[in-house]
Computed example of a mutant assay.
Amino acid sequence: MNSLHDAYCSSPEWAEILVGEVLPWGLAGLPEPEYAVELGGGFGASTAYLLDWARRLTVIEADATLAAGLTARFPTVDVRHADARRVPLADGVADAVVCFTMLHHVTPPAAQDELFFEAARLLRPGGWFAGTDSVASDRLREFHDGDVYEPLDPQTLPVRLMAAGFGEVDVEVGDRLRFRARR
């Protein structure tokens, strides 16, 4: 991430928005899982929230420094330094796989599709893949100057999720994008 993006994503202001608005909206109506996998824990604001949502939690983080920070901050969480497209967990282990405001950092779209297939692989039958992301805008493209910025297309997302093996796909767009899909 560029330094501005890094500073914002690690700020208390962003954590407050994530915990106060984004996560409650992203998870509204979903059953609390026994075991959840979070893809892209980042600085840990969503992880802190998910500790009260799932009985057991594994976090996958591609950045080694962020993964080490998550491990230190959350000793009861299984943190894995790994690519979310190749998670070192067995097939069908999770009741829920979630990711929040991170998919636009996965490029190209074919890599996002690999992540969707991996989420489906990790889920038990009936499990949920859910998350949120930003909606494409010139302002966000500017904010991501020097970063990876591959916003999701809400029009094609349902078909992409179904191709990865999901049913009951729901995509909602407002100020942000929310998706849910059931394996």
Rank of each mutant, 00 (worst) to 15 (best):
A136Y: 06
A84E: 03
C9P: 00
G131T: 07
A68F: 09
V93W: 11
P158N: 03
D138S: 10
V159C: 07
G92V: 03
V37S: 01
S134G: 10
R180I: 01
R160W: 05
D95K: 01
E172K: 10
L123K: 03
W25R: 14
D52P: 01
G131I: 02
A45P: 02
T71Q: 11
L177K: 09
E13A: 14
F129W: 09
E172V: 15
G174T: 14
G131V: 00
P154L: 12
G165A: 05
V148F: 12
W128M: 02
R55Y: 06
M1I: 11
A28P: 00
G126P: 14
P88F: 04
H81N: 13
P109E: 11
R124T: 10
V169L: 13
A120E: 15
G69D: 11
T76Y: 12
A36S: 13
E13F: 00
M162T: 15
G69Y: 09
G92Y: 05
A130E: 11
G69E: 09
I17T: 14
A111R: 15
E16K: 00
W128V: 11
A163V: 06
M102T: 13
D133T: 14
L57M: 08
A68L: 13
P24V: 07
F74S: 07
A96E: 02
R124D: 06
S3K: 13
V159P: 00
L4S: 10
D175R: 14
D52N: 14
R55D: 15
A82M: 09
Q112W: 05
A94C: 10
P151G: 05
L39K: 04
V159G: 14
C99A: 15
V106C: 02
Y49D: 02
V59L: 09
I60F: 07
L177G: 07
T101Y: 03
A64F: 01
F100V: 03
D78V: 11
V79M: 04
V87H: 06
M102Y: 00
L66Q: 13
P151R: 01
P125G: 07
T107Q: 12
G92H: 08
L103E: 01
D63C: 08
D95L: 04
L27W: 03
R56Y: 15
S46F: 02
C99T: 15
L23N: 03
R180T: 11
S137H: 03
L89I: 08
G174Q: 10
G127N: 10
C9N: 04
A62P: 05
H104I: 03
L157V: 12
L18Y: 04
L115M: 15
P108G: 14
D78Q: 12
V77G: 12
D6N: 12
P33M: 13
E21S: 11
T156Y: 00
G167W: 01
G127Q: 11
M1G: 12
R121E: 13
L4F: 03
T76R: 14
V169S: 06
